[in-house]
Design a binder for these strands. Structure first.
Lengths: 142, 142
DNA sequence: CAATTTACTTATCATTTGATAAGCAAAGGG
DNA sequence: CCCTTTGCTTATCAAATGATAAGTAAATTG
């Protein structure tokens, strides 16, 4: 097994993951959100509480633009900002109730598509899949 | 193992894959390309030859917008269009020499980052990883 | 062979996004 | 206590993107 072959598998695999998440998440986002805004909310949902800088870094967008989008998300009441008591420059960001409800619905729709996608898979295979997910998550994608 | 727990692992895993591909592909794209254009070229690179409709469907963008971006990519000479002989409405799209060279460079940079990322992993683990990639690719992400 | 469908194009306009400059207040360091 | 750094904001402008309407030519269908 040489590294180059592994890399090619990695590329093909990543492409497949992207394509599948595209399909599963197609049309689940609230109409009130732009694509970038939805991505941000999704990121906050899985990583909250999170600071503006962290969002900016992870989403590969500049601080000013991140700040603007968060302001809009705040105006639409999907998120809340809380100033850190220790370091009053920092803003901890989390979903508001409305934002959490919205993401809850989105994830439900994604989950039911996912379960449908996996319905023909045996219990044994599911366990193999789980092990594979854990392995890759810990050793490759972290 | 219930489906819901598996789904949560799936979500966390997909997020990790996205984040890692983000990091690996950061700044590799030619300055001549916009983000969307780079994504299209990347897709063509791994799926060529491909039709405009297929790109449109996979990238979740409308035909008019896909057509516009492909025209720009053609003008910049990254891609070539060939009309199908059988069905003269169809356009088969592939990378031009310039486009292939550009993607070749990009993939080389991504690969060297990837290899660095994996350098501390033993031969045995690499084989496990390969098996896990194959398993997930065939049973979950297809 | 007329009518419909498919694959794609052109044009246009509003909206989103990216990039940059300038600023502010809190924290930290000498 | 000044100076620098950090974390974030505001404002502005160009460029990219999304959405829609309208159209063409080739293929298919009744």
């Amino acid at each position: 097994m040489n590294n180059h072959t592994l890399f090619q598998k990695f590329v093909a695999f990543s492409a497949a993951v992207h394509q599948m998440t595209n399909e599963l998440t197609k049309d689940v986002k609230s109409e009130a959100l732009t694509p970038v805004q939805y991505k941000i909310v999704e990121y906050i949902a899985v990583s909250q509480p999170v600071t503006l800088s962290e969002i900016s870094e992870c989403m590969l967008m500049s601080m000013p633009n991140t700040s603007r989008e968060l302001r809009k998300l705040g105006e639409k009441q999907f998120i809340e900002k809380v100033t850190d008591d220790e370091d009053r420059r920092k803003q901890y960001i989390r979903l508001s109730e409305k934002g959490a409800a919205m993401m809850g619905e989105a994830f439900q729709r994604i989950e039911s598509r996912f379960i449908k996608h996996m319905e023909k898979i045996s219990e044994e295979e599911l366990q193999e899949i789980e092990r594979a997910l854990d392995l890759l998550h810990s050793k490759v994608f972290y």
